[in-house]
Amino acid sequence: MIKTETEETESKRELIVPGEAIIKGKDYLPGDGARREGEEIIATRFGLSDISGRLVKVIPLSGIYMPRIGNVVIGRVIDMTFNGWIIDIKAPYLAFLPLAECPKYVRGDLSEYHDIGDMICCKVLSFRGKGVDLTIMGRGLGKLEDGMIIYINSNKVPRVIGRDGSMINLIKEETKCEIVVGQNGLIWISGKTIEEELKAKEAILFVVEKSFVGGLTEKVKEYFGGKK
């Protein structure tokens, strides 16, 4: 359901600042956060350079969430219109969830379905210059009831998920909580008891803090081992 990024690739990663050349050569293609200038590939963002095959990109370390089509995000309903809901997804744009994108909607007041202040897990359907359109058609999408929401930097989300979801599955297993990680950095945790939820929260914050340590999954295993 959630896109993952490989945790540790074979290629050497280096810290790079905007305007710094990452690599020289006509064969390489500039990806996200990079541009070509003559022979060189130059970074346009501050982050870690990543060369996988011919593609050269920069993995940003900071910055706020920019929506992308297909991203699963968590947002809060902040307003209602006659044909849908306006949702804050912690991006520089407001998101709109149209009524037509809601399954099993029965006639009546919109607020009976999603009210102001509700947290919703949704998918980015389209993103144009002005505003984001969302959908909740799909498995695992919809209103999030109970539980707690925590917020992390969206750039750390791939770390929290881990390779093929290894990290998040480990945390889920260890804490017996249901966890949904939105690409925008909002994370929903729901467990049987508050203690379990807090344990999961602590573990996620641990991952965020130690996000640049190699072999992080092992470290988290140790972390859980120490807690018992």
């Binding site: 905007p18 305007g19 956060g33 346009t44 963002r45 501050f46 900071s62 706020i64």
Partner: peptide, 11 residues
């Protein structure tokens, strides 16, 4: 600006 992750041509 660079720290905020803003896309920049150079510093």
């Amino acid at each position: 600006l660079a720290h905020a992750g803003i896309s920049m041509k150079e510093l």
